[in-house]
């Protein structure tokens, strides 16, 4: 989809994210929430956590995807209006981390989502968990790269 420059600029300044906590350990989720709080305050960059995927521009995934969640995560991805981007926070979301050998996980988020949307674009912020500084840096880099 061709984006007009005005819209792209606005999108860069106002990425709203929907947080999809998956089968991870919760730690990345907490560091994400930490980014909203006074010390890091990502609202400076216009980032806002929203409660419905319909409002979101980016999907924040924070863990490996279990078999039980796989279909749901795929549906939520489709629930987001285009243009959309996936942000994989933490080693587990990127590569499954320590859960690589576990029997109950279906794969890292990018693989799962690409099954239904091959054109999906992702941003990876590895770390276990990434420090809030890292996440903020990651977000800023995403915005620059868009």
């Amino acid at each position: 989809m061709a984006l007009s420059p005005v819209f792209l600029k606005a999108l860069k300044r106002s990425p709203w994210v929907f947080h999809v906590g998956t089968s991870g350990c919760n730690n990345c989720d907490i560091e994400i929430a930490d980014c909203l709080t006074p010390r890091f305050d990502v609202e400076r960059f216009g980032v806002k956590l929203v409660g419905s995927p319909r409002h979101a521009d980016a999907m924040l995934v924070t863990g490996p995807i279990s078999h039980d969640l796989k279909g749901l995560v795929q549906q939520v991805w489709l629930d987001m209006p285009a243009p959309r981007v996936g942000v994989l926070v933490g080693t587990c979301a990127c590569t499954m981390g320590v859960y690589k050998d576990a029997y109950s996980v279906a794969g890292p988020a990018d693989k799962v989502i690409r099954e239904i949307d091959p054109a999906a674009r992702f941003v990876y912020i590895p770390g276990c968990p990434p420090k809030p500084e890292t996440i903020v840096m990651g977000i800023v880099k995403i915005l620059e790269a868009l």
């Binding site: 998956t22 089968s23 991870g24 863990g63 490996p64 279990s66 039980d68 969640l69 749901l72 859960y99 576990a102 029997y103 109950s104 996980v105």
Partner: peptide
């Protein structure tokens, strides 16, 4: 949903 098979 979060079952990760950790004990195993």
């Amino acid at each position: 949903y979060v079952h990760k098979g950790l004990e195993r």
